[in-house]
């Protein structure tokens, strides 16, 4: 196994008395997808915010290509090739869909002029690996080149025909695609996806997973926080389960998703014997769910942002 691009060691963050994440270790490898699951409030979004510098950890380190990038500001992390999406989509509303992606190309990871965007096969990982956060800034790319790349990125996520629209005119699914296109516009090596499948209709999930799979083939290291269990088991190489901020278990999707402890934190102990329960896609958000469980889900804090 090659060395991880992005790694976390003992990552911890508190919000007042609430331990949002506690001593989390993880490794992201090129060409692999790590799924992160856990009930609401388990600390999944906090984990992404810690990895991207949007939050500073109280303890622990974040390593990018082996270099310590803990406490670096978000733009440093983004320029070093780590892109993310937000759980609540954050389009730049005053701009067209195309210009949203242009912003990423103008300010994101800097490469030599003329290289294409959207992490084409072979371009990711190989050429940029080993340079890390200390990589010097290459020359700025011209606006024209960035615009060409932006259109390519939009084609890849299936938004090319809506490039001229305002973000407010997009459907929920297209807004998620735009969020993904903005992240890909950075030409990242690492992509952190915070519930990109949320709000999609069943028919829209398949193409989205195909796209994510193609990103893996291009050599991106992916982390996806997701509630759609079928998606997790379909594409993830490894799954990490967070529970009350701590890593409950980690491993292969099939093993993790049938783990009794995982079923217990997701659905309560009443479902312990029911093997089919893990297919329930959003059982964690049901407020009327069982009070007999070890940790009643309705009583848990909302996910801090």
């Amino acid at each position: 196994m090659t060395a991880p691009i992005l790694a976390a060691r003992g990552l911890s963050r508190r919000f007042g008395g609430l331990r949002a994440t506690h001593s989390v270790d993880l490794d992201l490898y090129p060409g692999q997808i790590l799924g992160v699951i856990g009930p609401n409030g388990a600390g999944k979004s906090t984990l992404i915010n810690l990895l991207t510098g949007h939050l500073r950890p109280h303890a622990g380190t974040v390593l990018l290509d082996g270099h310590d990038v803990t406490g670096k500001r978000p733009w440093h992390i983004a320029q070093a090739g780590v892109a993310r999406t937000f759980q609540i989509v954050k389009p730049f509303r005053g701009m067209t869909v195309a210009d949203n992606v242009v912003v990423a190309g103008l300010y994101g990871a800097r490469g030599p002029a003329g290289t294409t965007t959207g992490a084409p096969a072979g371009a990711v990982g190989g050429r940029r690996s080993g340079t890390g956060a200390a990589r010097p800034r290459a020359g700025r790319r011209t606006l024209a080149a960035v615009r060409r790349d932006a259109l390519e990125t939009l084609e890849r996520v299936g938004l090319a025909d809506k490039a001229h629209l305002a973000p407010a005119e997009l459907s929920v699914a297209d807004a998620r695609r735009l969020e993904l296109a903005k992240a890909l516009g950075l030409r990242p090596r690492v992509l952190l996806l915070d519930e990109v499948l949320a709000g999609l209709r069943p028919g829209e999930i398949g193409p989205a997973l195909e796209l994510i799979g193609s990103l893996r083939r291009d050599g991106l290291a992916l982390l996806m926080v997701e509630h759609v269990m079928s998606a997790i088991s379909a594409v993830c190489d490894q799954v990490l389960v967070l529970h009350q901020g701590e890593v409950l278990t980690t491993g292969e999707p099939t093993a993790v998703l049938s783990d009794q402890r995982v079923i217990a934190v997701y659905l309560g102990t009443r479902f312990n014997q029911s093997g089919s329960a893990r297919r329930t896609p959003r059982g964690d958000s049901d407020p009327s769910s069982e009070q007999s469980g070890p940790a009643p889900l309705a009583e848990r804090e909302e996910e801090p942002r």
């Binding site: 949007h54 978000p74 733009w75 389009p91 730049f92 912003v103």
Partner: peptide, 10 residues
Amino acid sequence: QDEDAAAAMG
């Protein structure tokens, strides 16, 4: 529009 998103764009 959004400072966090802008920072995430580098």
